[in-house]
Computed example of a mutant assay.
Amino acid sequence: MIFLTLVRRDLALALRRPGTLVLPVLFFVLVGALFPFAVGPDARLLARIAPGVVWVAALLASLLPVETLVEPDRADGTLDQIVTRGIALEVWAAARLIAHWLGFAGPLLLALPVAGILLGVPFAVMGQLALALLLGTPALAALALLAASLTTGLRGGGALAGLIALPLALPVLIFGVGVGGDGALKLLTASSLVLVALTPFAAAAALKSALE
């Protein structure tokens, strides 16, 4: 199946560039290690703001590899070959979205206990936070891919992609941090589903314009 082949290819490319997988995790853990020094040793304050810090760190970690999501395939002609072979750009975009999510969300979830302990997250909250990240990180991956597609070929596209993705991620962050009840969890899940469903089509439309 073409879709699975593209996903395997993208994951293999990510593994050949260890920084693509390692840097988001290191950033995530370093935020957990450094933030307590910035706000002081107040355990109650840390426990209250820790979920928000974790979500912001996850968002920024998802944007670290944004320059490698689209631009290399555009620059080396891979996207042109995809179109020439009759493969829809929507399929390529969906595969890249899945690969990006697996590449950054999986390691982040594994590193969450370390970051959570450093931030003083109560163990009772850790499970809820892990579930929220599992459901919400697909939306972050989708926004990163969409921003990368909109800015591919532009000078300073990586920085511009970050400026595009950050405000669009606000609803996801709000629902993710407020996951204390079922309502916020349902809204977070719905946001992820909508973004994951729409992003391949929006990204493909942006790429078609860039390739013309």
Rank of each mutant, 00 (worst) to 15 (best):
I49N: 01
R17C: 07
V125L: 12
T152V: 15
L59R: 05
L160V: 15
K186Y: 02
L69E: 00
A202E: 12
A58K: 02
G103E: 04
I117D: 08
L34T: 13
H100Q: 09
L59V: 10
L145P: 01
E67T: 14
P138E: 12
F175H: 09
E212W: 06
L4R: 09
R96C: 03
L59P: 05
V25E: 01
V22E: 10
V31R: 04
A148M: 01
I164E: 10
L134D: 05
L145F: 02
L109W: 00
P36Q: 08
L13G: 13
P122D: 02
S191K: 05
S149Q: 02
F175N: 09
G127A: 14
L195S: 09
L160Q: 12
G136I: 06
L26H: 06
A130G: 07
L188F: 05
F123E: 15
I98M: 08
R44D: 06
L109G: 11
L21F: 04
G19Q: 01
F201H: 15
L23N: 08
L185D: 10
A204W: 12
F201T: 15
P41R: 12
R85I: 04
A205M: 04
R48G: 02
V39C: 07
R155K: 13
V125T: 15
S209I: 15
I117M: 05
A130T: 14
L6W: 09
I82H: 06
A204G: 12
T137V: 13
A93S: 11
P167D: 03
L13A: 15
M1F: 08
L163R: 12
